[in-house]
Write a protein that binds this DNA or RNA. Structure first.
Ligand SMILES: [Zn+2]
Length: 411
DNA sequence: CCACTTTGACCGGGA
DNA sequence: GTCCCGGTCAAAGTG
């Protein structure tokens, strides 16, 4: 079924911390992703969809959402290790820079320099990043132009390709061996978690751009609404925001351990319809589709051989409301789904997971860019994973937020 | 019996 | 025109 389904609706969502925590926790904890029925409408040719990428970093999660403007992609990456973090950040910067190179090259460089100063980039991730990023970049480049023309958010402007969205600044802790085991065991869980985060981020950033530029399939864009709760929880700043979370992150960062962030499901049911080994990397990629009949939403999850989720990419938006069975996650994530646009893709990368435990894994670590990236930390979280998907039955978990179980608390 | 996961093969796009 | 690769479908298997 479905993965997590937290029952508490927005009303329940209290708050920022809670949400964040929950989210983060989920991410870290969730071992399995989920999948559920889906409908095969789309085919390979989805080219017009938007993708979002979300990256999380371990101690902190950073979220760099690229503006959809560029390519309509939202990327969320999750990073984790400190070491990796730096690298990740750097890499990400590169990527971002590239994407917006045209416009913000100078700025980017400056930022990059800062990051580099800390560490030299270099990492395996690159390979992957390059591929994905570059590949997408290029593609998007083309699309980008079109898109930009079509939708250019006034506020964001074409130049604002990257939206820095504070994904989740939740305290992340979890790095317990247990989690690790879980991760390894189920990538799915990770997936779910990542997914959730990604969605969240997506919405936020996206919502800004999307909302203005693209109308969502839904009559009522869930995006903004949905996001709001999430954002609030996460960052507390909807409008601006993207930084408040940092504070939290800091605290989290303090944590000695890495943090694993697990996200919960997005609230939707996904069904795995394929898996492939990434050629450029050792990681494997799983393809999930929303089970809803007419929903075209899809999600790609990349994980290391170890099973750790490296990256999650969301594509398309749900044209339906999330099944609210009982998952808190859903509340948040689900609401988010409505991003805007038919096709939005969100990419979540869990560097932390990989980095931490699997040197072999490669993900895009880059991560944090200046403003674009924020770190979010999640708390350990719970097992949202359970909720999410496989495990869960809709009501199995009480949900709310169980996730806050931190194994490691922040200092 | 149903729903989901897994796996191999197929298809289309791009280099 | 060919090769490589990503993405998807469909069949089989499992819970
Ligand atoms: Zn859907």
């Amino acid at each position: 079924m479905a993965g997590g389904d937290p029952p508490p609706p927005e009303a329940d969502l209290p708050a920022t911390e809670v949400d964040m925590t929950a989210v983060a926790a989920e991410v870290g904890k969730h071992p399995t992703p989920e999948a559920s029925g889906a409908k095969p409408d789309e085919r390979t040719g989805m080219g017009g969809e938007e993708e979002g990428k979300v990256k999380e970093m371990d101690g902190k999660e950073e979220v760099a959402v690229k503006d959809v403007e560029d390519a309509e992609e939202t990327k969320v990456e999750q990073g984790m290790g400190k070491e990796n973090e730096k690298i990740g950040v750097k890499e990400k910067e590169e990527v971002d820079v590239k994407e917006k190179e045209m416009k913000r090259k100078a700025e980017a460089e400056a930022e990059a320099k800062e990051m580099e100063g800390e560490e030299p980039k270099g990492k395996d991730v690159r390979g992957k990043e390059s591929m994905e990023v570059e590949g997408e970049k290029e593609k998007k480049d083309k699309e980008k132009v079109e898109i930009e023309e079509k939708r250019r958010p006034a506020g964001s402007g074409p130049d604002t390709p990257i939206l820095a969205v504070p994904m989740v600044a939740v305290p992340c802790y979890l790095a317990s061996p247990v989690f690790a085991g879980q991760f390894a065991m189920s990538h799915q869980a990770a997936l779910a978690s990542v997914t959730a985060q990604a969605q969240i981020q997506l919405q936020s950033p996206t919502s800004s751009s999307y909302s203005e530029g693209l109308p969502s399939p839904f009559p009522n864009p869930v995006t903004p609404k949905a996001i709001m709760p999430l954002q609030q929880a996460l960052s507390v700043n909807e409008g601006n925001a993207y930084r408040p979370v940092l504070e939290k992150s800091s605290s989290f960062q303090s944590r000695p351990h890495h943090v694993t962030v697990n996200m919960v499901g997005d609230g939707f049911n996904w069904r795995k319809y394929g898996q492939k080994q990434v050629k450029s990397s050792e990681n494997s990629r799983s393809y999930y589709r929303c089970t809803y009949s007419s929903c075209l939403a899809k999600k790609k999850v990349e994980h290391c051989p170890d099973g750790r989720v490296v990256e999650i990419i969301y594509r398309g938006t749900h044209n339906h409301e999330p099944p609210q069975k009982t998952r808190f996650v859903k509340d948040r994530a689900a609401h988010i789904t409505g991003s805007s646009g038919d096709d939005e893709t969100l990419r979540l990368v869990n560097a932390e997971i990989i980095a931490s435990r699997s040197p072999g894994c490669k993900l895009e670590q880059g991560a944090i860019s200046e403003a674009s990236e924020q770190l979010f930390c999640s708390s350990d979280c719970e097992g949202d994973a359970d909720n999410k998907s496989e495990d869960d039955h809709p009501s199995t978990e009480p949900q709310q937020k169980r996730r806050i179980i931190e194994t490691t608390t922040p200092t």
